[in-house]
């Protein structure tokens, strides 16, 4: 099994093939519906994002609160298609990798091909297992959104499947 580290380089992205199981280490930002809406509004207004998205990875999750003694609660993936409407401006702003679950629309697949991007799938419903792979979690933006705030996560050996590779091949086809 391949181990990869985020932020990912183009070189490491090009080695990955749809359907392959990988273990992810490194830095990942969370963001789901409400955070995406705000990020795109900021970009539209020409305002910098509250974190530098360049070369980064976004994980579509809204975690449970951290119980005492833990860094985070359950944190599995949410359905990616709701983020399709917001993904293009973020990819154009430098976002490289998206983590979620379920298929993406054609525009997102085209952007992945054009910008050498990558779409990884976490195992839908495996929130407790994912939480075990998160070793640090800090809110970096939109604190008022509660579970939809943007967290900066440090992950260790998070099991993911290459769902859409940089050539646009999909595990869902």
């Amino acid at each position: 099994m391949t181990t990869i580290t985020s932020p990912l380089t183009d070189e490491s992205i090009r080695k990955l093939v749809a359907g392959e199981l990988v273990l992810l280490n490194g830095i990942v930002y969370t963001g789901r519906d409400a955070a995406h809406k705000r990020m795109v509004e900021l970009l539209d207004a020409g305002i910098a994002l509250p974190f530098d998205a360049d070369s980064q990875t976004i994980y579509y999750t809204g975690p449970c609160p951290a119980p005492p003694g833990r860094v985070i609660g359950s944190a599995g993936p949410t359905t990616s298609l709701r983020m399709d409407a917001y993904s293009l401006p973020l990819i154009e702003a430098g976002l490289k990798v998206m983590i979620g679950k379920g298929s993406r629309n054609e525009a997102v697949v085209d952007a992945i091909k054009e910008y050498c991007g990558l779409y990884l799938s976490a195992i839908g419903g495996a929130g407790a297992l994912m939480a075990q792979c998160i070793i640090e979690a800090v809110v970096v933006a939109f604190d008022d959104l509660g579970p939809e705030a943007v967290y900066k996560l440090k992950v260790r050996e998070m099991p993911l499947v290459v769902a859409i590779d940089y050539k646009g091949n999909s595990v869902y086809n």
Binding site: C64, S74, A126, G127, A128
Partner: peptide
């Protein structure tokens, strides 16, 4: 196997099976 492992972790660690509670 991961879903089964997830269910075991949830029960033992008292974490929700899924973050969408």
């Amino acid at each position: 196997d991961m879903l089964l492992e997830n269910a075991k972790i949830a029960a033992q660690e008292r974490l929700p099976i899924c973050q969408d509670t």
